[in-house]
């Protein structure tokens, strides 16, 4: 009997170590980014980093405002495209389609998530960029193009998690609502979506996270200009692409400035996550 207990404790300890190591990795990364990025921000002042439009790192100008706005614009654009498509798809596949169609379509959409981002970027460059340039104007590398590609990239995340949360609802919700005389659409709108909202919001948060963090595809199709975009057809640079583009060459202050970019990205993601969590809590209560 005692041997069994000991074994149990050992397993517990072992799992605890693994759980702690995951957290410690997160802690290490945060500490590293902040110790590398914060000193330069203190030296030049936060205002210069956050509100200056000039990014000339070799001359000592480190204004990140265009990239901050760029990241937000591209992410917002991706959500505008990805969320309605993802939600509508999830609603159709769970409520209106036959089981056969669902079993066929869902895995196919989930396959989209397995396509490497460089492939999305490549397709964007070869097909979408010329299309946008010829039909909408501008150089083709733009907020608009990046939003479309990112919207498609976050689609599988939103769709499959929303489907799972809609499917997880007890069938009695739907049956009860229909029995009371509600139409199918009324049932979806007034009963099922509110009941599944925590899962749906989780899917949006994950989609948001992917859109903010995506780097490769965005570098390839957003154009990476450091000027503030004046329209959605202008090129734009995001925080992630700023780091990845210039990482290979940097030394000294320029390198620290890229870590500072990482700090700001970190903070933005924290803010977005907290906001999303708060909304979902408020909606739940």
């Amino acid at each position: 009997m005692r041997g069994k207990e000991n074994r149990e404790k050992l397993i517990q300890l072992f799992l605890l170590t693994i759980a702690l190591s995951a957290i410690s990795i997160l802690a290490l990364i945060s500490i590293f980014i902040f110790t590398e990025g914060l000193p330069i921000m203190f030296r030049h002042g936060f205002k210069k980093f956050l509100f200056s439009l000039d990014w000339y790192p070799s001359e000592g100008y480190f204004g990140l405002l265009p990239m901050i706005i760029g990241s937000l614009l591209v992410t917002a654009g991706a959500m505008v495209i990805g969320v309605p498509l993802g939600l509508a798809g999830a609603i159709y596949l769970t409520q209106f389609s036959s089981k056969k169609v669902r079993n066929l379509v869902k895995p196919m959409i989930e396959l989209l998530a397995g396509i490497p981002s460089v492939v999305y970027g490549f397709i964007g460059v070869v097909i979408l960029v010329p299309f946008v340039r010829e039909n909408f104007g501008g150089p083709g590398f733009s907020v608009f193009t990046a939003s479309i590609i990112l919207g498609i990239m976050i689609l599988p995340t939103i769709l499959s998690i929303s489907i799972d949360s809609l499917m997880a609802l007890p069938p009695s919700y739907r049956e009860g609502s229909i029995a009371l005389g509600a139409t199918q659409w009324q049932t979806v709108r007034m009963v099922l979506l509110p009941a599944a909202r925590s899962g749906i919001i989780a899917s949006l948060i994950l989609g948001l996270g992917r859109a903010v963090g995506e780097t490769m595809a965005v570098i390839m199709i957003a154009g990476n200009a450091t000027a503030l975009p004046r329209s959605i057809l202008d090129p734009v640079r995001t925080l992630t692409s700023n780091i990845a583009l210039e990482m290979g060459y940097v030394s000294g202050e320029h390198r620290q400035a890229l870590f500072a970019t990482g700090v700001i990205l970190f903070i933005i993601i924290m803010i977005l996550n907290t906001m999303a969590n708060l909304t979902s809590k408020r909606m739940a209560s």
Partner: peptide
């Protein structure tokens, strides 16, 4: 300074690719 509005690409090859596809680049 090079204009901030310039499209930035990260290799010789991608610059060539962009110019090869864009009549006004």
């Amino acid at each position: 300074r090079i204009t901030k509005k310039a499209i930035v690409q990260d290799s010789n090859g991608t610059v060539r690719e962009v110019v090869a596809n864009d009549p006004y680049a």
